[in-house]
Amino acid sequence: MSAQNSAAAHAVALRAGARKGLWRRLLAALGLGGARVRQADAEAARWAHGAAGEDATARLLAPLTRQGWHVRHDLRLPGRRFNLDHVLVSPCGTAVVVGDTKAWRRSWPTRVVQGRVRCGPDDRHEQVAKVAGYARLVGEALALPGVSVVPLLIVHGSPVAGGGFEAVVPNGRVWVLGTELVVPRLVGAVRTLPDSHRAAALARRVDAVLSPYGEGR
């Protein structure tokens, strides 16, 4: 399954829904679809933009598998509507990283202003806090003492202050990293010797608890 599967599929569904019916398809083909089609196309473009970011992150993370990481994309917790863009199991088998990809405006820097994460003039702190919430729920679902679940927000486009920083949110702390620091920071965070058996067991637990997004919805 492509990392961008659910987001890209949603973009396609939005465009198709606005053109449902022969007459609407004909009008859209003539450029006369009206406000409904324009609104759907604009929202679909945002979803497609996010899907492209998720796919870029998947390519960025792929080399980690050669270092013993187990990498998954586009998962969900049963009974929850949100998707988990990326879930990684460390090669030591003692940590799970819950990653969320954002594609933010290139001309606006991402930084902390008065304790809140902002991208240019936009407050993005609530989006960052959501990642901490996702990680907490994943940790509760895994129910494995001794396993850390780390929230990570990966920013494409927007330059991140210092390449990356740790944001303090109500649910804890979240790594906010630009793409150039993602792999080095993950690799550098592993301070325990690799344990392939323990990592594989933790990956199996992740696969048992989480499911591909779209299944069982």
Rank of each mutant, 00 (worst) to 15 (best):
Q39R: 15
R36L: 12
R116S: 06
A56M: 04
Q39A: 15
A95P: 05
Q127W: 01
L177Q: 00
H125Q: 04
W104A: 01
R72N: 07
G214M: 01
R191E: 14
D207R: 14
N5H: 12
R25T: 02
G33Y: 06
E54K: 06
R116K: 08
L144K: 08
R15T: 09
C92W: 01
R118F: 06
G214C: 04
G33H: 00
A48F: 13
R105N: 11
A44Q: 05
G21L: 11
V160S: 04
L144H: 11
A29N: 06
N171E: 13
T65Y: 05
A40L: 10
R118K: 07
F165S: 02
R118E: 02
R25P: 01
Q4A: 15
C119S: 09
R106K: 06
P170N: 07
G33M: 07
G214R: 00
P145N: 06
G33T: 03
R66Y: 12
V147Q: 09
V176C: 03
W69P: 00
L152G: 11
R217A: 13
H73E: 06
V12T: 09
V98E: 05
A48I: 03
A52W: 07
L64R: 04
A42G: 12
C119H: 01
L210W: 09
Q39M: 12
G157I: 07
R205E: 04
P78W: 05
A42I: 04
W23P: 01
G50E: 10
A45T: 07
G21S: 08
A48D: 14
L27S: 09
L27F: 14
A45G: 14
A28L: 04
G50R: 04
H70A: 14
E54R: 00
A16S: 14
H49V: 12
P145Q: 05
A9E: 05
T65S: 13
R185D: 10
R36K: 15
I154H: 03
V37M: 03
V147A: 09
W69F: 15
D41C: 02
Q67M: 15
L181N: 02
P212D: 05
L142W: 09
G133W: 05
L84W: 10
L153W: 00
A135W: 08
H86C: 06
L14W: 11
T57F: 08
A44V: 04
S158D: 11
A40V: 03
